[in-house]
């Protein structure tokens, strides 16, 4: 079941992208999602696509994994594209049926949306494939720091985030184990009608919740026993380093923005 899920997993490596500062990668990914909306013609999308492919090339990760990352979302993408195509008016009309009409603008808009989706998924997959989850949560903690001014509990949130990320694989394993145990007791997951399917989930969910409660209690005890008292006065073991290459990457994104602004119509 989990086998096909590529999104949100980390592939170890030592490429240019892998060794970048996670803060730089995080900022870059969000920035990319922002500037993708600057694109409004074929030239701009071509520029963005070349840029994305170059980033993927730098990461030395096989492009197949990126394409696989799109698969779970393909229906959502196609649905959005279809809506765009059917309801956008303007330009030459190719097909007309009641309120639905396929027009020149509609087709172009649909294709643009498609490109936008694919590029955003590629970029965010690139982020998660090349950054270990803990680095990512360190980066989020760092970037959230300014929010301390408005009394936002930055330390607590980032602690919860890193614990949550740490336990995702553990919980996945646990889920798989309990699923197997219940299947061995004659439960059919994912068979029958909707109500039967929902009923079959109960023997999976309850043990998962119970074990999460137990785990949380044990973890809290273990943390207290090791002297954890909250965020104040703690030092950091994992320290993030901003390198020249991170500045270079930022400059590349600035250049990309300039190019986009010139090329867009």
């Amino acid at each position: 079941m989990m086998n096909k899920l590529i999104f949100g997993r980390y592939i170890p490596g030592d490429s240019f992208i892998h060794t970048m500062d996670p803060r730089a990668k995080l900022i870059a990914s969000f920035y990319f999602i922002g500037i993708i909306f600057l694109a409004n013609n074929w030239q701009t999308y071509a520029v963005l696509a070349v840029f994305t492919l170059f980033a993927i090339f730098l990461s030395k990760v096989n492009i197949r994994f990126f394409i696989r990352g799109i698969k779970p979302l393909i229906w959502l993408i196609l649905f959005t594209v279809a809506l765009q195509m059917l309801f956008t008016q303007g330009g030459e009309v190719y097909f007309d049926w009641g309120i639905f009409s396929i027009t020149e603008y509609g087709v172009i808009n649909g294709l643009f949306i498609f490109c936008r989706f694919v590029l955003i998924i590629f970029m965010s997959t690139l982020l998660t494939l090349t950054t270990p989850p803990l680095d990512l949560s360190d980066a989020i903690e760092y970037l959230l720091r300014p929010l301390k001014v408005v009394r936002f509990p930055v330390h607590e949130v980032s602690l919860m985030l890193s614990i949550a990320l740490r336990f995702v694989p553990t919980l996945m394993d646990e889920t798989e184990k309990i699923m197997n145990a219940q299947r061995a007791r004659g439960v059919d997951f994912g068979e029958g009608n909707l109500i039967q399917k929902m009923k079959a989930v109960v023997p999976l969910l309850i043990p998962l919740f119970v074990s999460s409660f137990n785990r949380a209690e044990d973890l809290a005890t273990a943390m207290e026993a090791r002297g954890y008292q909250g965020g104040d006065g703690r030092t950091k073991y994992r320290v993030l380093h901003w390198h020249v290459k991170d500045t270079e990457a930022m400059i590349a994104f600035a250049l990309l923005t300039v190019i986009l602004i010139f090329v867009r119509s």
Binding site: K177, A181, A184, V202, P207
Partner: peptide, 16 residues
């Protein structure tokens, strides 16, 4: 599955 029963490691985790 009826003929071959498996008791997994730490089977107490399967009670619900």
């Amino acid at each position: 599955r009826k003929k071959v029963g498996i008791v997994f490691q730490f089977p107490e985790a399967q009670l619900f």
